[in-house]
Structures are given as structure tokens and as C-alpha cells.
């Protein structure tokens, strides 16, 4: 499998495609550089098993260690609460995307517009449509995906990764943030 082919093969978008995050350090640099990042946690994150945990467990760590505000889509807010993380907002994926595209919006915490939106655990095709909306209509917002599949519609995406490589990458991203 080509590591930068869209995971769903027919999801070819257009001329502008996501840059691939080849190393965890790159992701960390992107997060660190962002003034006001946001993490959008999708419904599948509570289902997808990554090693001995769920994807959501890694996302909780990421949000907590990075001090990153969180939007929970669908019913995943409940799973976050069970992990002692209160999401800043519970919103539909398309709803948060529309807010992000408004340059005057004050953000989920009222601290001003977000300049980086990170996505994980949404259905692939829904992530694609939402990222496309942001790519075209939110020029001030960069997007990054943390799924183990390549999302051409993002600004930065992980490549199509094996479970083992994904776990390593997620762990490194989180550990580096701690430093």
C-alpha cells in the first residue's frame, strides 16, 4: 500500500494534498508552533483499539499534556468524561468546522480563533468532507490528522501506518510534548 495514497482509494481530492508527517517531532513542532490549537475527537476513537488501549486514551493524554482544548463530536463526550476529561464543547463535526471557518469566532474557550485543528477518530469520509470545507474556506486554520491513514484533504496527515508504527508515533508525539 502506498503510504500516501488516500486510505479510501477513490478519495482523491485535487492538486493540493496534505504534507505527510514522517516523524513525531514534526507533529510536535506543528503543535508547539500553533498559538491556539484545538483537538476534535470523533466517535470512533472510543472503538478503535491501539495496542492495549483505545485511541481515545492517547487523545486524552495529548490534550492534557499539551493543554489543548477539546471538541467531542457525536457521543464521545461521555467517553471523555469517563476518562476525567471534560470536553470544552460537544458539537457535530460539520458544526465545529463551520465555526472554525469564521475568522471572527472566538474559539471554544473564548480565547480567540484557533489556528490549528487536529482531528482523530471520525469516520474517514466524514473527516475528508470536513477537512475539505476547512481547506477551502478556512485559510487561517491549518489542519492535522492523527489517524493511521492518509487524509489528503488535511494540511498535514500521518501516512497509512501499521498499528505498531502508529502506536510508536502517538506515544512519541505525547512524550515530546511533555518535554
Amino acid at each position: 500500500m502506498g503510504s500516501t495514497d488516500p486510505w479510501m482509494i477513490a478519495e482523491v481530492a485535487g492538486p493540493r494534498r496534505a504534507s505527510v508527517i514522517t516523524k513525531a517531532e514534526v507533529a510536535d513542532a506543528i503543535i508547539r508552533r500553533a498559538r491556539h490549537p484545538l483537538l476534535i475527537v470523533g466517535s470512533l476513537s472510543a472503538e478503535i483499539e491501539v495496542d492495549d488501549r483505545k485511541l481515545i486514551d492517547y487523545l486524552v493524554l495529548l490534550a492534557q499534556k499539551g493543554g489543548i482544548p477539546v471538541v467531542a463530536t457525536a457521543q464521545v463526550g461521555k467517553d471523555l468524561l469517563e476518562r476525567d476529561l471534560t470536553p470544552d464543547r460537544q458539537m457535530a463535526a460539520v458544526d465545529i468546522a463551520q465555526r472554525l471557518a469564521d475568522p471572527l469566532w472566538k474559539g471554544v474557550d473564548g480565547k480567540g480563533p484557533h489556528d490549528l485543528a487536529m482531528f482523530a477518530g471520525l469516520p474517514y469520509y466524514l473527516t475528508q468532507t470536513v477537512l475539505s470545507g476547512l481547506k477551502h474556506f478556512a485559510p487561517a486554520v491549518k489542519t492535522m490528522t492523527l489517524d493511521n491513514v492518509y487524509h489528503p484533504q488535511a494540511s498535514w496527515s500521518l501516512s497509512n501506518l501499521s498499528l505498531r508504527d502508529w502506536v510508536t508515533t502517538l506515544r512519541s508525539i505525547i512524550e515530546n510534548l511533555e518535554e
Binding site: 485535487g14 493540493r16 477551502h136 485559510p139
Partner: peptide, 22 residues
């Protein structure tokens, strides 16, 4: 709120046109 399914238009022979962004 538009979420383009494809960045291009290919409806006429001028195309394909890349409509990305503005």
C-alpha cells in the same frame, strides 16, 4: 457551509479548473 467533494470543475472544455481556496 460547503465541503467540496472534489476541488476541480470539469463541466466544460475549459476545464479541468482548480477552484481550490479563492
Amino acid at each position: 457551509f460547503y465541503m467540496p467533494f472534489c476541488d476541480l470543475c470539469c463541466l466544460c472544455t475549459y476545464g479541468k479548473c482548480d477552484l481550490t481556496g479563492d
